[in-house]
Design a protein around this nucleic acid. Sequence first.
DNA 1: CTTAACTCTGTACTGTGTACGAAGTAGAGG
DNA 2: CCTCTACTTCGTACACAGTACAGAGTTAAG
Lengths: 261, 261
Amino acid sequence: MSRVSTEDNGGSDPRRAIELLWGVAAPARRGPKPKLTTADVVSAAITLGDADGIDAVTIRGVAEHLGVSPMTLYTYVPGRAELLDLMIDHAHGELSVPEPGLGWRAALTALADDEWALYHRHPWLLQATTTRSALGPNSFARYEHELRAVEGIGLDDVEMDAVVTLVSGLVRGTARSSLDAARLVRTSGMTDAQWWERVGPVLAGIPAADPAHYPLASRVGTAAGQAHNAASDPAHNFRFGLARVLDGIETLISARSEGRE
Amino acid sequence: MSRVSTEDNGGSDPRRAIELLWGVAAPARRGPKPKLTTADVVSAAITLGDADGIDAVTIRGVAEHLGVSPMTLYTYVPGRAELLDLMIDHAHGELSVPEPGLGWRAALTALADDEWALYHRHPWLLQATTTRSALGPNSFARYEHELRAVEGIGLDDVEMDAVVTLVSGLVRGTARSSLDAARLVRTSGMTDAQWWERVGPVLAGIPAADPAHYPLASRVGTAAGQAHNAASDPAHNFRFGLARVLDGIETLISARSEGRE
DNA sequence: CTTAACTCTGTACTGTGTACGAAGTAGAGG
DNA sequence: CCTCTACTTCGTACACAGTACAGAGTTAAG
């Protein structure tokens, strides 16, 4: 199956998974010396994922990369799902903390830029579901830093949570488009331009697809396409979206401070 | 593999796929009467997807549901990837057109609500990648209607495109969280509350996870959790996010009209 | 009637996660 | 030192994917 994306865990024992995330494993008291560590496995998996996407992160693949038989990995990791969770939290450890004293707008921008870059370094991050597995130390720390950026600007706790979730969601969404587009170029071997050269004529031969039926779509689509030199420009969508979202947050903050004065 | 999500096409012949999307297939001139139509296959696939997610949409499963052998489907559809594309465009046909004359804010809200509902009716939509396959008639029509909502309010073409992409991206992102959360409850058999009952004690036993290390995160996380009666509330995130985004767009529109006056 | 196009299907190949059980290793208890 | 037992490693095997291929059966065109 030519598969490409978000995968997730079934309902395995959460205890073991959390202990692995936080690195609290009682070291083995007996038996042969392990050849590997859980960290080795995670790091090999990340190498594979960076190179060829989440689908390349197979038990067999990781094992081969480590020079070990597939079943050996189950000593270090309960299963593939938990391995993905470990990869995710590990990658989030690469995120840097924004300089303090930046002001909420600059701080949120820095966080967003950093996250955007992270997803582009590790595209598989957006191919794996996070829900409920954001319980690792690095994910916790990230949330803490995001909140710090919007603390003391007149929002209540629930609003602070909503604001950082909103910004983070924007980054995830636009980065996802960006990565999907890049992957499509790779897998299809065609750039956007080449693709349209192939597809344009086919579409032109279909009466129902006449641009006259979609006047706005064809005008605006063409304009946007020319402005960006591509059918879509996720980086622009990211910057544009962030600007709008921050403006919207600003409006909220103003409303709150007016209400109090 | 316990898989859960966005999948996509490799690099198959786009011509056949587009002809299927637009329904321009030269009917067979010879041979036995087909038992099925492509529409039958698509509709069976959607039934399966609605019931059990994208992973339930297997060639074998769809074939069985239709009472034919698996290989038979390849007469109607080039492969699984193209079947997903057809499902996507078909589902987008369910979207309604907003009443005309609503004003951009109400119109965008109506579009967003409609899309939000669509994703909840057909959760598999967000498990399948759309990029470059948004070439079907219903996807085209949708883009046209979105643009109509923001026409004539002082934005240029590139901005109009960016605005509808932003709103649509917000819906996709928040809906995705919503569906991921719902699926997790289903697959794990635990509600959010039950989950935290299991996980809380484990986390409490880990020194590094001491709330004191994450003061803001624990305060705000707790507050948000209590306010929503759940660890996260995607529906609230959707409404909150949409309000912020629309405010941000309003700021842009004001800036544009001031600049021109 | 012949032929060519078309539908349908059984078999088979590759690749996946992982359950199971056997084999080997090394510290703990005596 | 010997034995036990926890531990690591790994070969085999199973269920389930997508789909390539080849053959059999069916129908309209010439």
